[in-house]
């Protein structure tokens, strides 16, 4: 997750006073993290790029209201999560998590794995299938479950931090994660083996 260090605090203070160069520093410091998060929620490169832009534009406009209570990273992630969820909700229901898109994305990775690790074509094929199924499993999750899971699993955020981003109580956050994982286990069971 994006962390706010001392230099962030100074940069934010300058950006808040209208220093565009300071804001540029914040954009350049955090854009990859925001892209990664947005991509995992939307699973669409174009959507993720749009989310990055929208997140920083909203952050710029809201910078004066940022009090620093929650940390810049949490604040920025909250904006990015909202933008990503807006995108996902605006999509046609059947276009979310386009499996073809995931397959195309996964193809070069499989090839790289074969050449770099000496994996057999069968293993590469299995990896590709698992990737496709993981995308499909994520599709079964509600936007809230998916986001809570992504923030916990990929971003390594604590339940408390996730609750702060999603605006949910600790128990509700936990249950979103539990429900999400249960659904994923069910969908992935045919590929990975025994279901719980």
């Amino acid at each position: 997750m994006v962390q706010m260090d001392e230099s962030d605090a100074i940069t934010i203070s300058l950006a808040r006073d209208g220093d565009d160069e300071a804001f540029r520093t914040l954009v350049e410091r955090h854009s990859r993290d925001v892209f990664r998060l947005a991509y995992r929620i939307t699973v669409d490169q174009q959507d993720a790029e749009d989310v990055v832009q929208e997140t920083f534009l909203r952050a710029y406009r809201g910078l004066k209201r940022f009090q620093g209570h929650s940390g810049f990273g949490t604040w920025l992630y909250r904006i990015a999560v909202n933008c990503s969820l807006d995108r996902v909700r605006r999509r046609r229901p059947d276009s979310a998590y386009d499996e073809k898109h995931v397959e195309l994305d996964s193809a070069p990775d499989s090839a790289t794995q074969v050449s770099c690790t000496g994996e057999s074509p069968e293993a590469a094929l299995l990896a590709s299938e698992v990737r496709r199924q993981v995308a499909s499993a994520l599709r079964e999750l509600s936007p809230l479950e998916r986001t809570a899971f992504i923030l916990r699993h990929f971003e390594g955020l604590s339940i408390e931090q996730i609750g702060a981003i999603l605006g949910t109580e600790c128990n509700a956050t936990k249950h979103s994660i539990f429900r999400g994982i249960r659904k994923m286990r069910r969908v992935l069971a045919p590929v990975l083996g025994r279901t719980p």
Binding site: R24, V27, E28, R29, S31, R32, F35, R36, Y39, R40, V43, Q45, V52, Q53, F56, V102, D105, S106, D109, A127, V130, R131, V134, A135, L138, H153, I181, M184, R185, L188, V191, L192, G193
Partner: peptide, 23 residues
């Protein structure tokens, strides 16, 4: 096993000048 398999979902590589483009 299930949770480890989720890591298969990779994020696309970004170009070296990505930050400048975003800005």
């Amino acid at each position: 096993r299930t949770l480890d398999s989720v890591d298969y979902l990779t994020v696309p590589e970004l170009p070296a000048d990505y930050e400048a483009r975003v800005w």
